[in-house]
Structures are given as structure tokens and as C-alpha cells.
């Protein structure tokens, strides 16, 4: 609420004076090329991270569901990544992509890709998305796996009789039964990409965003906490809140209709 109020004022950092400026802060943000650029990246980032972390989580869970021997150690291995805090994940990821010592950078060089994380926009975005996806897979894995395992054996057997193709069975029987889990994960993953990736981004850009890709949340932080522009960053966080509200509304309105709970 404080944010909504501050967003209509222009304040000096120490709070000695505040001038009511109406929607100026919003107009400043929404007409700034850089803000729109960051918004565009946030959109792409959210879509890619949500898609890949869900898809890979699903793939791994489906495979893990099939494994019978040694399944617990396999699962533990996959889940353990989830126990890593985002900044630490960022740090580990960053080591893989480090310009001087990163193994991924050396690997990329074999294919003639001169990777420059921290200078080249695309390379940094690539590293950021990879680390963010890697961090989120285990979470999705746990939920999808438990969703898969809650599908009754009788249903699976019946399906196996009706349809010989494994993929066909998965597509027509397993997936619809997973829908409630998947819908829940969709929302969780989107909020993850929008907000919880902050720690990863902070570590990857090393506190200096420069020309590197950042998300809207990071921009709020930069302007508010680093730049001490309280009105401007309050307006940005209100915009962000509205985006999330609208997104959630649409998801419940249009996607949830197609989800059948038991």
C-alpha cells in the first residue's frame, strides 16, 4: 500500500519533501525505451524458463517413474539441486560460465562460439536462462513425479490394453490426469521466473547490470535500493503487481477451465 502511495509522489531520498506528481512516475517508466526493453526481456525470460523447466522436469519425472532399480538414489540426485539457495545456484552457474575459467565457455569454444558472459547480451541471457531452468527443474520434478505416481495402476493397465504406443498413452491418458499438477506448476513457475530468479540474476550480472539482460524485479531493485529513486521504483513495482494480477486472473479464467480435478 505504501508503494501505491509513494508511486504518485516524487521524493528526495531522505524523505524531507514529497511532491504529488500524479501519474508522472508511471508515464516516465512506461515511455522509457530501457524500461520497455527490460519488460520485453522479462516476458521472453519468463516464457523460456517456465517452458524449459516444466518440459525437462516432466521428461525426467516420466523417465524416473519408469525406473525401478536404484530409483531412490536417482531421485535424490535430481532433487538435491533444489536445496541450493538461488544466489549459490547463481554462483555455481556463474563458475561454469566464467570468462576465464568456465568449462562451458571452453566447451562452447570448440564449436567456435566465443562466449562472453557479461559483455554479450545474448550470451549472458543464455547463461541466465540455463541457470534459472537448472535451478527450477527439481521442484517441478518432485511435483510431477508425485502426480505421476498418484495415477492409479488400474488406469495405467487399462490404458496399456487400449493403446500400445507409449507416447500415445502418455499424451491421451497420463497428461490429462496430470493437468491439475501442471496448472499449479505453471503458476508457480511463472512467479518463480518473475520474482525468485532475482538472486541468480544478481550473481550473474555481478551487481553491475550494464548492458546485460535483467528482469523487471531487478530494475525495481536497481532504481529503488541502488538509485534511491523511491517514487519511480514504487511505480514500477505497482506495474509489476498489476501484471501478476492480470496474469493470474487470465490463467484461472481460461486455462483452469480446461483442467479437471477428480
Amino acid at each position: 500500500m505504501q508503494a501505491v502511495q509513494s508511486s504518485f509522489y516524487l521524493e528526495d531520498p531522505f524523505g524531507f519533501s514529497a511532491t504529488f506528481v500524479g501519474f508522472d512516475n508511471y508515464i516516465d517508466a512506461l515511455t522509457s525505451d530501457y524500461y520497455l526493453h527490460v519488460a520485453k526481456f522479462t516476458l521472453i525470460f519468463t516464457i523460456l524458463v517456465t517452458f524449459f523447466s516444466l518440459a525437462l522436469g516432466l521428461l525426467l519425472a516420466a523417465k524416473a517413474d519408469d525406473v525401478i532399480r536404484g530409483s531412490s538414489s536417482y531421485k535424490t540426485l535430481l532433487i538435491s539441486v533444489y536445496a541450493i539457495a538461488p544466489p549459490v545456484a547463481g554462483l555455481i552457474g556463474m563458475m561454469f560460465f566464467d570468462q576465464h575459467i568456465g568449462p562451458f565457455v571452453k566447451m562452447a569454444a570448440w564449436f567456435g562460439w566465443d562466449m562472453k558472459v557479461g559483455i554479450n547480451y545474448f550470451d549472458t541471457a543464455f547463461a541466465m536462462i540455463t541457470v534459472a531452468v537448472w535451478k527450477q527443474i527439481p521442484y517441478n520434478f518432485i511435483f510431477i513425479l508425485s502426480g505421476l505416481q498418484s495415477i492409479p495402476v488400474s488406469v495405467r493397465e487399462a490404458a496399456a490394453i487400449d493403446n500400445r504406443s507409449r507416447f500415445g498413452r502418455f499424451w491421451t491418458v497420463t497428461l490429462p490426469l496430470l493437468a491439475p499438477t501442471a496448472f499449479f506448476l505453471l503458476i508457480i513457475n511463472m512467479t518463480y521466473s518473475l520474482f525468485d530468479t532475482f538472486g541468480i540474476i544478481d550473481v550473474i550480472v555481478k551487481d553491475k547490470a550494464a548492458n546485460n539482460p535483467i528482469t523487471l524485479v531487478y530494475k525495481v531493485y536497481m532504481d529503488g535500493f541502488r538509485g534511491n529513486d523511491i517514487g519511480g521504483s514504487a511505480a514500477q513495482s505497482v506495474i509489476l503487481m498489476l501484471i501478476v494480477l492480470v496474469l493470474t486472473f487470465f490463467q484461472f479464467r481460461f486455462i483452469e477451465r480446461r483442467v479437471h480435478y477428480n
Binding site: I119, K208, A209, A210, N211, R226, G227
Partner: peptide, 13 residues
């Protein structure tokens, strides 16, 4: 500090 951030961005570019 914010002007510095703009510089950092443009210099990297």
C-alpha cells in the same frame, strides 16, 4: 549512481 548504471550499460554496448 543511476547515471553510472546508464554509462555501464552503454559502454558495454
Amino acid at each position: 549512481p543511476q547515471i553510472r548504471e546508464v554509462m555501464e550499460r552503454e559502454y558495454n554496448k
